[in-house]
Design a protein around this nucleic acid. Structure first.
Length: 860
RNA sequence: GCCCAGGUGGCGGAAUUGGUAGACGCGCAGGUUUCAGGUACCUGUGGCCGCAAGGCCGUGGAAGUUCGAGUCUUCUCCUGGGCACCA
């Protein structure tokens, strides 16, 4: 049996598209624009299945939109700065630039093999001075407008490697490379003022109606606007009674529960905690212990809640007789509110757990509306619902919201505090003490302070001659790079050696794609034409940080005149990951899938020595667990179209996809089946120009209607990212075309139209095969240039429909009725069914529910 | 710990607004073709009972609303993503 020669075919069509510059775009006043963007890849070495899935989806959208008449921008670039390049430099002695550009070369080739409809003329790499010089200019603009600033903040410090560690590099409190216990250290760092837009970033989420609801929710919670109050407490030494000079300010969202306060707690990094630790060795030791946890919020929050009683006491503002102990506690975050809290165990579960642990009082101050206030007590569970205030002096009897308002008034009146709004969102620390990133373009001068690098001197380029043999930041070690003269006073000064977080690089690349070679960061005409991105596609793991930073950056760029919009991504789709089973040998070492042989009984052995292999559950493909399948191998063996089809079939795009060999083979079989349907059709195919026969026989009519239902359905599916459903529909259509009987004129005609429709509909998904079949069907035009087919609405409505008949909600049969048949007719047909009579068992119907064109339910 | 998702046959999944659960595919079984393997094609395939007709059960679990629940409500279990220096 002859097979589709994908190798020759895919290369040939890729060459044709490239030669004709089919996907090259520019401004076009004739057609509406459509900007399709997939999150650009990090050049880690080779493309992985996640890339294949992401770029296949994007390409389907791009090709589909193109066919429906849009001027489509679909670019590609490289998120090219980052840690792995430096790790490669340290481990293998390759320069980060060499490693990165070599990876880009490999991956570009691999992406081109996929047949993506990309305008490669717009390719950018963030590690190229032609890109990052503009990023430096943006930074200077932000500095000018107060959106960039410097402050001290905490980092994970590896005392052996003398380097700052990412949270990811801290494993069980130790540095991943050195194994040394990490410390928290304070460093002066550069920040971008994301909080300047807290409200805007939150409120504008409501306008992002083509974003997944869950992503908006996650961002909303991340920004975390809370209405509450600041309260200032007097603090004194519990033994001596000596008062502290400055009051302790806390933030709370439950100022209504102030009369239930039984302790206060400071963050280990609160200035007061530091000052107490200066005179209290145990406090200092406790703080040091907390620091072992590192800076990761997950680690801090998941750790056992512990506190240290400082011996100081906090005075209740409205009850001079009452004092509560002041703790330093590991769960209080310095980054949120004021870094100090008051604890009300009766109405907060964490406070309750803490109070039980340290034997603190629990005073209920809110009771359920119907509860007996005198008898209301707290057991193991805090009462966190709304209710009525008790034991609370001037708040007694008020509902919670009213109590909050009254308390806020009273605090303000007595100058003890005031109502406020705080955000969980923090400013974005962008300083990294690393080489392979965009240099921050400032100079530190003893006399002048921080001096921006003059714009004419941009880019501040990374030096090539760096060494990675010493721990720490190579830029800092470089013999000459940082030694410069102050641009203002001319005296000896020092270049900033911090580079920018790589998230900065990816926060504006979508804008750069509009004018990738412009002399300015953006060409206003171009960004105004192309932005916003109409459809952005990427992994759900970026739901918060990358997307939020990009939203912030767009606003910051607007403020500085580089763009004229607020929201960069009008539509967002978040795809699931590609997963595979994991395998370990008897010693527990991870094995690659192609080292495995599956036995008929379902167990697995190593292919070389047939030793036993334990099969683990399916997880996201990762190099560390070796559960990876190399896309290039798949493309070699089955072709890009097969790989693309498999990525789109079966699993909904937002869900995790389980990679299976059987699945790819199924896709391969369908590719061949489709090819044979055109290459060796089962019956006569009418000529290209053949007119519609006057009358269609039953089979032809049925098929013709399915063609139109399929066009309609697939179009709708592609609009809604239901690629798996679209594939299923096309398969239904080709199944029916394959079964068309004989060579009659109407059959031959519908066979042609059906095949053409199938080829057009599958085109965005399997572009090479579709081009090939389109040509085989006698067309000279590129399918890529052919408009999307349209469904005839008249052919979408069925005249006869089958509806179910239930008795007491259980299906007992079906009836065929004309569309919109009248109620009496449907009811009598339903009641006449054998199965219905049997189920009614002689009982008269109490009620017959007829839902037109849907269902009949007989209630007896 | 906190925030956000997802759980439907042996497997991936389908099921406009609450209205015939299991489309389409994988796998499996039987058959045709073939020297054989593979390919291709045909038939069957949620579970249980039954010779059959047919019946009962069935969308992670428990309860509820409804003539009717995969879909709505409450509780619960499991799995995944994120938690600010991985990208």
């Amino acid at each position: 049996m002859s097979r589709y020669n994908f190798k020759e075919c895919e290369a040939r069509w890729q060459a044709v598209w490239a030669e004709r510059e089919t996907f090259r775009v520019g401004e076009d006043s004739e057609r509406p624009k459509y900007y399709v963007l997939e999150m650009f890849p990090y050049p880690s070495g080779r493309i992985h299945m996640g890339h294949v899935r992401n770029y296949t989806m994007g390409d389907v959208v791009a090709r589909y939109r193109r066919a429906t008449g849009y001027n489509v921008l679909h670019p590609m670039g490289w998120d090219a700065f980052g840690l792995p390049a430096e790790n490669a430099a340290m481990e293998r002695g390759i320069h980060p630039a060499e490693w990165t550009y070599s990876n880009i070369g490999t991956m570009r080739g691999q992406l081109k093999q996929m047949g993506l409809s990309i305008d490669w003329a717009r390719e950018i790499a963030t590690c190229h001075p032609g890109y990052y010089r503009h990023q430096q200019e943006l930074f200077l603009d932000f500095l000018d407008s107060g959106l960039a600033y410097r402050k001290e903040s905490w980092v994970n410090w590896d005392p052996v490697d003398h380097t700052v560690l990412a949270n990811e590099q801290v494993v069980d409190g130790r540095g991943w490379r050195s194994g040394a216990l990490i410390e928290r250290r304070k460093l002066a760092q550069w920040f971008l003022r994301t909080t300047a837009y807290s409200d805007e970033l939150l409120d504008a989420l409501a306008t992002l109606d083509r974003w997944p609801e869950r992503v908006r929710l996650m961002q909303e919670n991340w920004i975390g606007r809370s209405e509450g109050a600041y309260i200032r407490f007097a603090v004194s030494n519990g033994r001596t009674g000596t008062p502290l000079e400055a009051p302790l300010e806390v933030f709370t969202t439950r100022h209504d529960t102030l009369f239930g306060m039984t302790f206060c707690a400071l963050s280990p990094h609160h200035p007061l905690a530091a000052s107490l630790a200066g005179k209290d060795k145990k406090a200092a030791a406790f703080i040091a212990e907390c620091d072992r946890l590192g800076t990761s919020e997950a680690a801090i929050e998941a750790a056992e809640k512990v506190g240290y009683d400082t011996g100081f006491v906090v005075h209740h503002p409205f009850d001079s007789d009452r004092t509560v102990p002041l703790y330093i506690a590991n769960f209080v975050l310095m980054e949120y509110g004021t870094g100090a809290v008051f604890g009300c165990p009766a109405h907060d579960q964490r406070d309750l757990d803490f109070a039980r642990k340290y034997g603190l009082d629990v005073i209920p101050v809110v009771a359920p509306r119907k509860a007996d206030a005198a008898a209301f007590a707290i057991g193991d569970e805090a009462f966190v619902d709304d209710g009525v205030l008790i034991n609370s002096d001037f708040l007694d009897g008020l509902e919670v919201p009213a109590a909050k308002a009254r308390m806020a008034e009273r605090l303000a009146a007595d100058s003890l505090g005031e109502a406020t709004t705080v955000y969980r969102l923090r400013d974005w620390g962008i300083s990294r003490q690393r080489y392979w990133g965009c240099p921050i373009p400032v100079i530190h001068c003893e006399g002048c302070g921080i001096v921006p690098v003059p714009r004419a001197e941009l880019p501040v380029a990374l030096p090539d001659d760096v060494a990675f043999d010493k721990p720490g930041n190579p830029l800092d070690h470089h013999p000459t790079w940082k030694h410069v003269d102050c641009p203002q006073c001319g005296t000896k000064a020092r270049r900033e050696t911090d580079t920018m977080d790589t998230f900065v690089d990816s926060s504006w690349y979508f804008a750069r794609f509009c004018s990738p070679r412009a002399e300015q960061p953006t060409d206003r005409r171009q960004v105004d034409y192309w932005l916003p991105v109409d459809q952005y596609i990427g992994g759900i793991e970026h739901a918060i940080l990358h997307l939020l930073y990009s939203r912030f950056f767009t606003r910051a760029m607007r403020k500085c005149g580089h763009v004229s919009l607020d929201e960069p991504f009008a539509g967002l789709f978040t795809q699931g990951m590609v997963c595979h089973e994991t395998y370990r040998d008897q010693r527990g070492a991870w094995l690659f899938p192609d080292q495995i042989e599956r036995l008929p009984d379902g167990t697995a052995v190593k292919a070389d020595d047939h030793s036993r292999v334990s099969v683990g559950r399916s997880e996201s493909m990762s190099k560390s667990k070796r559960n990876v399948v190399d896309p290039e191998r798949i493309i070699e063996a089955f072709g890009a179209d097969t790989a693309r089809l498999f990525m789109l079939s079966d699993t909904p795009p937002e869900r995790d996809l389980e990679w299976t060999e059987a699945g790819i083979e199924g896709a391969w079989r369908y590719v061949n089946r489709l090819w044979r349907m055109v290459d060796q059709p089962a019956g006569a195919v009418a000529p290209r120009e053949a007119a519609r026969p006057d009358a269609l026989s039953g089979a032809a009519d049925q098929a013709w209607r399915l063609v139109h239902r399929t066009i309609h359905g697939v179009t709708d599916d592609l609009d809604k990212f239901r690629f798996n459903r679209a594939v299923a529909r096309i398969r239904e259509l080709t199944n029916l075309i394959g079964e068309l009987p004989g060579d009659g004129g109407d059959i031959a005609w519908v066979r042609r139209r059906g095949l053409e429709a199938a080829v057009q509909l599958i085109g965005p998904m399997m572009p090479h095969l579709a081009e090939e079949l389109w040509r085989s069907l006698g067309h000279e035009t590129l399918l890529a240039d052919v408009p999307w087919p349209a469904a005839d609405p008249a052919l979408l409505v069925e005249e006869t429909i089958t509806i179910g008949v239930q008795v007491n909600g259980k299906l007992r049969g079906t009836i065929d009725v004309p569309r919109d048949a009248d109620r009496e007719m449907v009811e009598s047909l339903a009641l006449a069914l054998d199965g219905v009579q049997r189920a009614m068992d002689g009982r008269p119907p109490r009620k017959v529910i007829v839902v037109p064109n849907k269902i009949v339910n007989v209630v007896v």
